[in-house]
Design a binder for these strands. Sequence first.
DNA 1: GGCGGTCCTAACGCACCCCTAACGCCGCTC
DNA 2: GAGCGGCGTTAGGGGTGCGTTAGGACCGCC
Lengths: 224, 224
Amino acid sequence: MTRVLVVDDEPDFRRALAVTLRSHGYTVVAAADGDEALQLAAEVPPDLVVLDLGLPVLDGIGVLTRLRAWSTVPVLVLSGRSDSADKVDALDAGADDYVTKPFGIDELLARLRVMERRVSSDAESAPVSLGNVRIDAGARRVTVGAEEVRLTPTEWHLLDVFLRSPGRLLSQRELLAEVWGPGYETAQGNLRLYMAQLRRKLEADPSRPVHFVNEPGLGYRFQP
Amino acid sequence: MTRVLVVDDEPDFRRALAVTLRSHGYTVVAAADGDEALQLAAEVPPDLVVLDLGLPVLDGIGVLTRLRAWSTVPVLVLSGRSDSADKVDALDAGADDYVTKPFGIDELLARLRVMERRVSSDAESAPVSLGNVRIDAGARRVTVGAEEVRLTPTEWHLLDVFLRSPGRLLSQRELLAEVWGPGYETAQGNLRLYMAQLRRKLEADPSRPVHFVNEPGLGYRFQP
DNA sequence: GGCGGTCCTAACGCACCCCTAACGCCGCTC
DNA sequence: GAGCGGCGTTAGGGGTGCGTTAGGACCGCC
């Protein structure tokens, strides 16, 4: 299920858009202003973002800039202004698409499908096996041999990030920003703790990790 | 240099667009009809495609469909029709963006930059091969033959600088300033040390370097 | 109110990485 | 052939990052 974050300050418009998106199979999270949007995006990272430019206090470009500091989620910008300079500013600030109000809902849905294609082509979730450890991320289930192992929400969150980029080295900044949200990039002790937890539960010999390897000074790598 | 394939049947428009794109640093290949476009795309795969929908014989949607059979290159569709159904058709057929004529050239360029961002972020993980040594800077991973070689943070940092400018001679001042920061331009012993480390880990015969060559009195050169 | 579970902070060894210094070698200059 | 500067190599000490443990704060549930 694709999760969409809708950011717009007009309650009626926001609600109408949310209803339409839900009727087309999306899971919708709505925010009324920039701060709420950033907070929601950090707590439960969405798959797509629909962002209105005309927000009070923190405007759309501001939201986009701060979001892009740690996230690469596709963002579709909505705006009442069709001025070319506005479009260029938003697109160069990190937006993936720009639609001017009023717009046809069919076009918006089609453009969302384009962004969805890109996301889903990256993420494919099939069960992973490490020796006698089986990880089924979709079903939120881990079994070691015959017996089941329980993971806490934070452990799952961390494991998800690794499953998304197998073999790649993930810097501590990336991991911290992804799991604990932006602003927690300095809580390294936390990351060390949960890496130990994952290893204790998923590695055959936790003191000699094979699948969750640390590269000193760089970060951690998940080896399937 | 980003390669753009421009497909449009109107010679004047095609030429004008090509000139504009070239003046903004793109390498442009132009095609006047669908068959020529597909042939060119197959011969020398472009990084981006700008496709007019109103082509004779094989129309834009047809080109898009055949292209998508084997290529995932980003495609920006141009069209004189602003009808919502046309946009939906093109986007669902595999287009990444849809711009209606007449359009502001600034907007088109901004939208091309968006697609360019995506291509370059994917191509970030393009591994480099030196003999039986494989360097994947994106995944932070180096393998010599079958076994993996670990590099320290400073070694990676230094290697990154070389990978960014292959074949170019880099002065010691440049290297020192880039890796150790400005002010460390005199710590040449340091640089010699880490060059030795890189050679020991990446050269087949470290005492006779082939890829990391010193030019006495000048600096070092990376030969892929 | 008691209790199990989860999450976070702080502190302590230990290993490893980075830097400095010194020495031998080669090629260039005179 | 002697002197010199630049380069490659080795060894050792200081510092930092990592794994680990213990303890307390917070929340939901019985």
